[in-house]
Amino acid sequence: MSQALKHSLSTEHRAKVQARGVNVYYGDKKALSGIGLDIPEHQVSALIGPSGCGKSTFLRCLNRMNDIIEGCRVEGAITIDGADIYAKDQDVVQLRARVGMVFQKPNPFPKSIYENVAYGPRIHGLAPGRKELDDLVRDSLERAGLMGEVHDRLDHPGTSLSGGQQQRLCIARAIAVKPELILMDEPCSALDPIATAKIEELIDELRTRFTIVIVTHSMQQAARVSQRTAFFHMGELVETGSTEQIFTNPKDDRTQAYITGRIG
């Protein structure tokens, strides 16, 4: 962690994502109000907060996964590299190729391990030939730290892997599309501590190539993997800052109460 901390202090990180005045409604219910948040490039940003505070909702705004929810409405501005992702001419499919996502429960396709990773590149036309696709799949599995475990059974179903391996397969599937941003929605909540440790290690390695936003229930996890932390409470962004500052010297009483276990 100390190494990660040094890294975050030594370099200036420009904001990859900027959210300004974001309100989200589910029907009549307001789930998020007035969120303004910068997500720095090549860092891990953790979104923490009690259940139902809106952190997952905010995450799903970043790749417009909320679009598929009936009655969901997003107001305000979210930009990636300065371009509004809710603009009329923004193509959602292109956006999701730039912004990958890993879900709470591992959800590999019921296809082979190879097909799981090859699917994204294939539909986006990232690999012109068989050879290139093979290399891309192997490279992605390698980066996800799964190649050593599955190199001899790429044709086995992805669902035959253990929970932790499935989640790394999902990460491999996400990075195979070569996204700029990876969203992780409580990626370890269904995993045992050993599998969790592997994923956390992986997140730290992936940070050099990708910008990562992770929603987590575990404050320890936020402290271990992230450089920036944002604390959400009841649909509002209470406080944001460097992870060290949030956990050692929170400015807001609610943050203080949450990280010491009094609320949430």
Partner: peptide, 15 residues
Amino acid sequence: VPPSIREAALAVGAT
């Protein structure tokens, strides 16, 4: 069919 499969496909950029 579990919704997680739809989310997985949409999230890698499938139409």
